[in-house]
């Protein structure tokens, strides 16, 4: 057999795109193989929704002015589940380092930014798929399957998971040990969740904590998600404002478009930072 000559194309942009795509594809293949992870990461949202949600409902005498607590936290639990999956998917970098595969990627003639972007998109895709399973439970808590509602929620989930994978990677790129990174993620995800308005309205928090909520990307996703869900429920504007007060910066109402932008910019900044750290880590 004669040798197949391989002349390598020198178009670096399309080359980098191929790099992004193949890293993304690998994340999907790995996700598809790991059925166990898909099932186990459903446990937490189910617990929050049906155990915590039901339990707390007895405290509020079954409802907040006729609205079950399960409905109130549903958008928050959806965001939480997406965020957790996204953050933990970034841990795969540490695994890859441990098993040597990261080396194969690092020595390739591809820009680090392409590798990091591929990973972030992979995490975003898998976390959104995971979120869809939770989204499918909407009917069980009495939220209608409205196409517009579902599309908006999907978009928000995609945005959130992209940003959170990028944030997770900033940590995963520099930390060498799987235990440390697990601990670090755990330490970060819970405060992010509690200070996002996912489980309770942020109105009653002291000022210094309120500042933290404004720096939390999850806040800017949970708020529009709650709004769109509550738009599709029969409830008064007064009640809606009470359980989901609008996000303000020094008293100014932040419009939804800007909220989306804030999350996207945070994600891109994290991505750039992760790339820079990746370059250093070699």
């Amino acid at each position: 057999m004669s040798i197949v000559p391989v002349s390598v194309v020198d178009d670096s942009r399309s080359h980098d795109l191929r790099g992004v795509k193949v890293v993304w594809q690998r994340e999907l293949i790995r996700f598809g193989q790991d059925r166990m992870r898909i099932v186990t990461s459903l446990v937490q949202p189910v617990l929050y929704l049906f155990v915590l949600g039901t339990g707390l409902s007895t405290l509020t005498k079954g409802s907040v002015e006729g609205l079950s607590y399960r409905k109130i936290i549903f958008p928050g639990v959806l965001a939480m589940s997406t965020m957790f999956t996204a953050m933990f998917s970034s841990i795969s970098i540490v695994w890859d380092r441990e098993f040597g595969f990261l080396r194969e990627m690092l020595v390739a003639p591809v820009r680090r930014g392409a590798l990091v972007t591929g990973k972030a998109l992979g995490g975003a895709t898998t976390a959104t798929i995971q979120g869809c399973i939770v989204l499918a439970m909407a009917g069980a808590v009495g939220i209608p399957y409205n196409p517009v509602l579902i599309l908006v929620l999907l978009g928000e989930m995609l945005l959130l998971s992209f940003t959170m994978t990028a944030v997770g990677m900033v940590m995963a790129v520099r930390v060498k040990q799987i235990q440390s990174v697990m601990g670090l993620m755990q330490m970060i995800t819970m405060p992010l969740l509690f200070l996002s308005g996912a489980l309770f309205p942020l109105g009653g928090l002291p000022t210094w904590l309120r500042v933290v909520t404004r720096l939390n990307p999850l806040t800017y996703v949970v708020n529009p998600m709650r709004h769109i869900v509550f738009d599709h429920l029969n409830m008064s504007a007064e009640l809606r404002n009470k359980i989901t007060p609008p996000i303000t910066w020094w008293g100014w109402h932040v419009p939804v478009g800007l909220q989306v932008l804030v999350v996207a910019v945070m994600g891109l900044l994290a991505l750039a930072f992760a790339t820079q750290q990746f370059n250093k880590a070699e």
Binding site: V6, V9, R18, E104, A108
Partner: peptide
Amino acid sequence: HAELYGVP
């Protein structure tokens, strides 16, 4: 590997 190295 082929994708990362841009093999046609």
